[in-house]
C-alpha cells in the first residue's frame, strides 16, 4: 500500500497507488495516511483514481483518516470509480464526504 503526496495551491493531494483498499490493507492505509497528513494544508484531497475496489474495512479506514485530521481540516475524495462511488452511496457516506468525479474537479473548486 503506497501513498504519494504533492502540495498544490492550498491543498495536499494524496494519491493511493493501489487498486484495492480492503481488509488486508485497511490498517496500513490508516497509518500511512496519518504520516502523510501529519502536518500540511487545511484541505486534503484523497485521489482514488487508481482504486478499483473498496470494502467496508477500507471505507472505515477512510473515515478514520478523516477523523485523524481533526476539526480544523477537511478530507475530500476525488476520482472515484463507479464501484467505489457505489460503496459510498450505499452506506450514505456520500453525505459525510464531498466526492469529486476527478482530481481536476476537486482542484477547480479550490481555485474557483
Amino acid at each position: 500500500m503506497q501513498l504519494t503526496s504533492v502540495q498544490r495551491g492550498d491543498a495536499s493531494i494524496v494519491t493511493v497507488k493501489a487498486d484495492r483498499i480492503d481488509a488486508a490493507v485497511a490498517i496500513q492505509f490508516k497509518e500511512r495516511m496519518r504520516s502523510e497528513t501529519e502536518d500540511g494544508p487545511e484541505r486534503v484531497i484523497l485521489n482514488l483514481s487508481e482504486v478499483s475496489f473498496i470494502d467496508s474495512s477500507g471505507l472505515g479506514a477512510i473515515v478514520a483518516a478523516m477523523k485523524q485530521l481533526g476539526t480544523e481540516r477537511r478530507l475530500d475524495l476525488a476520482g472515484l470509480s463507479p464501484m467505489v462511488d457505489k460503496v459510498f452511496r450505499l452506506t450514505r457516506m456520500d453525505t459525510v464526504f464531498t466526492l469529486f468525479p476527478s482530481l481536476d474537479d476537486a482542484m477547480a473548486e479550490l481555485e474557483g
Binding site: S56, G60, K67, V96
Partner: peptide
C-alpha cells in the same frame, strides 16, 4: 459530529 462517526 465527524469525530464520532463510526468506522465499522
Amino acid at each position: 459530529p465527524p469525530a464520532e462517526l463510526p468506522e465499522g
